[in-house]
Each structure stands twice: as C-alpha cells, then as structure tokens.
Amino acid sequence: MDKIIVGISGASGTQYGLKALEILKQCDVETHLVISKSALQVMKHEASQITSQDLENLADIIHPVGNIGATIASGSFKTKGMLITPCSIKTLSEIATGVTSSLLTRAADVVLKERRRLVLMVRETPLHLGHLRSMTTVTEMGGIIMPPVPSLYTQPKTVDEIVHHSVVRALDLFGFDFDMPRWQG
C-alpha cells in the first residue's frame, strides 16, 4: 500500500488539509498526519466547525508534532512523499534552511533528502523577497511550491469546489488520478 504524509501547518486554510484527508480516505493509500500547534490555533479561529478529532478520524496514523522519533522522521520509512497544506511561511522557511524544529518540518526535510515528492501549498500574500527566496531554495532542493490558486475555468459555485479542485491538483503531483473538471481547450 502506498503511504503519504499530510502536514497541516499554521497558515490560513485548514480546510485544504481536511479536504486532502477526505480525498485520500477514498483511495488505497495509508495517510500519516502531523499537525502543528499553530495549525490547531488557526483552526479554532477560522474553521471552528472542524476539530482536531475530525482530522484525526480521517488519517490512518497520527503523529504528534513533537515526536521526532516517529517513523516519518526516518528516510528508511518509505512514502510517496509529503503534502503540506496549508503551508505557512515559517514551515517553508524551516524546510528551506534545513533547520527543523518539529516533526512536521523534519519529515519534509527527510522527504527532500530521500528525493521523494514534497508539495507545499503555501498560503501567504503578498510575498516579500525573503519568502520568494525560500520558495526558490525549496524548489532547487526538489520541492514543489503550489499555492492553492482557484481555477476559475471550472466555474466553481462553492468554496468547497474551489478547495477540492486545488487539493486534487496537488495530489495529481503524486501520481494520483481523481475525477475532476479538467481544462478541455
């Protein structure tokens, strides 16, 4: 069975992480979830209808953010890679420098060193030069920066449709193939 790590950091947009777990739950893939402390705080303010238990119920394995001895902290634990959604600038910056302070960024660091797929759905705007340099650094290291930008050609009618499409596009990068509206030309 394929394994994928889903990270949720303290940027706005916990709904993206929830949607990723919902979609992956329908697949033959084992999900490993790690949520930052900041993500839990943000979630209380912008998505009070979502609880940490909701997220944990969708994941196969939950890793406490402080457990640096978890399986996902080792390169010998094979995965398809890691999706961090949403990805805060702090998380991006730790990954770019390799100076990791939690299991969330340690797991991303391991994914990069093992040359596996790392997709960061960075949620920040506007961006200053430091943000852009961190994005460039992660890209040069093999990561993919994929801000959740809505595809308006799908003519979404709800916020959930926008979130769903963005997450499916991110999961496409891991080789998954989901039914969704695609550009027809």
Results as ranks from 00 to 15, higher is better:
residue 3 K to Q: 05
residue 5 I to S: 01
residue 8 I to K: 06
residue 10 G to Q: 10
residue 11 A to D: 00
residue 12 S to A: 14
residue 12 S to T: 15
residue 12 S to K: 09
residue 20 A to S: 09
residue 22 E to V: 06
residue 23 I to G: 00
residue 27 C to N: 04
residue 33 L to Q: 06
residue 33 L to G: 06
residue 35 I to D: 04
residue 41 Q to A: 08
residue 45 H to V: 10
residue 45 H to T: 10
residue 47 A to K: 15
residue 48 S to P: 12
residue 49 Q to M: 06
residue 50 I to R: 05
residue 50 I to Y: 11
residue 51 T to D: 10
residue 54 D to R: 00
residue 54 D to V: 00
residue 57 N to L: 14
residue 57 N to F: 12
residue 58 L to D: 05
residue 61 I to R: 13
residue 61 I to D: 07
residue 66 G to F: 12
residue 67 N to C: 07
residue 68 I to K: 02
residue 68 I to R: 02
residue 71 T to A: 05
residue 72 I to G: 00
residue 73 A to Y: 01
residue 80 K to M: 03
residue 81 G to Y: 03
residue 83 L to G: 00
residue 83 L to F: 00
residue 84 I to R: 08
residue 85 T to E: 00
residue 86 P to N: 03
residue 86 P to M: 04
residue 92 L to V: 12
residue 92 L to K: 07
residue 92 L to N: 06
residue 93 S to Q: 09
residue 96 A to V: 13
residue 97 T to F: 07
residue 101 S to L: 11
residue 109 D to H: 02
residue 116 R to Q: 09
residue 118 L to D: 11
residue 120 L to M: 13
residue 121 M to H: 02
residue 123 R to L: 01
residue 125 T to Y: 05
residue 130 G to M: 15
residue 131 H to F: 11
residue 141 M to H: 14
residue 142 G to Q: 08
residue 143 G to Y: 06
residue 145 I to F: 06
residue 145 I to Y: 05
residue 147 P to L: 07
residue 149 V to D: 08
residue 150 P to I: 13
residue 150 P to Y: 13
residue 150 P to V: 13
residue 152 L to I: 10
residue 152 L to H: 07
residue 152 L to S: 01
residue 156 P to C: 11
residue 156 P to E: 10
residue 156 P to L: 11
residue 158 T to E: 00
residue 158 T to Y: 01
residue 159 V to D: 11
residue 162 I to G: 05
residue 162 I to M: 10
residue 166 S to H: 08
residue 168 V to L: 07
residue 169 R to Q: 09
residue 169 R to F: 04
residue 175 G to V: 14
residue 175 G to C: 13
residue 176 F to D: 12
residue 177 D to Q: 07
residue 177 D to H: 07
residue 179 D to F: 08
residue 179 D to T: 14
